[in-house]
Nucleic acid binder design. Structure first.
Lengths: 119, 119
DNA sequence: CCGGCTATTTATAACGT
DNA sequence: TACGTTATAAATAGCCG
């Protein structure tokens, strides 16, 4: 929308990029909320700004509540029609990777080498 | 938009509600993707349909990747304390459970006892 | 239930302050 | 750098098949 048709590629000018992010972020949160209200559904949105700041939206309860609902639905995350061997092996690899990451982060936290995760 | 201005409340007619969900879901995924591309950022979207079906979108990597980034960010918009031992152990247990479930489902699928995952 | 088809409403790109 | 303004691109409500 707007004066000119926008090309769908990264906006190179950092100022314009940040401004566009700010505007569109607000709009998409609004859209998410409309979807949740109109259709009486649960919606969650997670967005990182170009500078790394997180904006989250959840139509009901905390973002974690919805994330937990998602995590507790193995095999359905991406609405795969009929799961096949490739899907299962990829999914298992993904879960293994995540477990390793969690363990690494836990270890680092124990050692107090970090107190927060940065970009 | 559309022929009439829409009132922001739950659509009572279930057919209309489902149709509206379907259309708007697609649009918001498109918007999320535009935001990610234009602004070179990470975005994740989680939406449950009126019938409970999940649609997820992630601009980069898996939805879990972005959820992990969110969970591991103390002091951001939705605030969460620094991850502690309990969180890590619970998360690991969850991942282990998921892996086991995926393996079970894979085995069942191999045996052709089921052909798709249902709610 | 899934796609088209407009009339209208919204969102927003480019400017302006 | 953050807000308004406006012309124009997009999204979409109500219908139809």
């Amino acid at each position: 929308m707007g004066r000119n048709k926008l090309v769908m590629k990264k906006i190179e000018n950092s100022t314009s990029r940040q401004q566009t992010y700010s505007k569109r972020k607000d709009s998409i949160v609004k859209k998410a909320n409309e979807l949740a209200v109109l259709c009486d559904t649960d919606v969650a949105l997670l967005m990182f700004s170009p500078t790394g700041q997180l904006t989250s939206y959840s139509s009901r309860g905390s973002v974690e509540d919805i994330m937990l609902r998602v995590v507790n639905r193995p095999g359905e995350l991406h609405r795969r029609p009929i799961p096949n061997e490739q899907y299962f092996s990829q999914r298992l690899a993904q879960l293994k990777y995540e477990s390793e990451m969690v363990e690494k982060i836990a270890m680092l936290t124990r050692r107090s080498l970090i107190s927060s995760i940065k970009d």
